[in-house]
Amino acid sequence: MSLADSTNLSATPPKRRRRLNNRVLRRLMRNKAAVASMVVIFLLVVVAVFGDLLAPHDPNKVTLSLRLMGPSGDHLLGTDELGRDVLSRLIVATRVDLLASAQAVGIALSVGVPLGIVAGYLGGFTDAVLSRVIDALMTLPPLILAVVVVAILGPGLRNAMFAIAILIVPSFYRIVRASTQGARNELYIESARASGCGTWRILWRHILPAVAPPLLVQASFSASVVIVAEASLSFLGLGARVPQATWGLMLNDASSNLTTSAYLIYPPTVMVAITILAFSLLGDGLRDALGRQTTDGK
């Protein structure tokens, strides 16, 4: 038997893996809440991509004569304190919010996953140092940590996203580290090592696939955390800045006109709640579909 054959044997045969994926997908499809969440997320993405075409008005056009008009035929959700169309702003904000969340989750993944794999695979001193730093980050309540990071970097949407990425790095790190530790001593890793696989190849080809399922679950949960954090920071005036439209800023505008124009509060509230709900129910569905091994994911 040649070396190449034995490495192939050591990995999960491709056919079996595909069958496994099919089973997971079937289980996910049977979960009504998860399917509904996926539909909602798909719709949100469509709105984010084609927002400019869907918006009935220019979202930034200020018409002071039309300020704080309730919902009407021309402005389905009314206008805000500067006479801007609420529906159009809501649509455009979807893009800003989804992009910003994808950014934060992406940054957190690209930092948390490598660190977690390295810590879990190498163990020892590296693991001890990294885990201590992560523990330290987790000592602060998420929002306070975000506020401190924004204080240091300066306000603005991009900095807020960096701050939020730092918040969710620990959860990715912990999950990846735990699953790497679990996979490290599996027979197939040992045989890959015995057949002369390099460390990087083992990490990339064998460890990463084992880590992926719980990571997917956590990424879904994290997306909802990010939406909340972004909206909170924008609401406080530490995230997105004024001409930009985000749900957090719209909520802030609405809260300052609460006594006169309560209708402003509902559209962003519904969007925030639906998005959070979709990502967390999808996370639940993924976790159930992937089976018990990922229950330590949350």
Partner: peptide, 18 residues
């Protein structure tokens, strides 16, 4: 419970004030 999980504190605060 699932629905309430999706209402961040600041949204809840504004709605409660309203």
């Amino acid at each position: 419970a699932n629905l309430l999980m999706a209402i961040p504190p600041f949204v809840a605060a504004v709605l409660l004030v309203l």
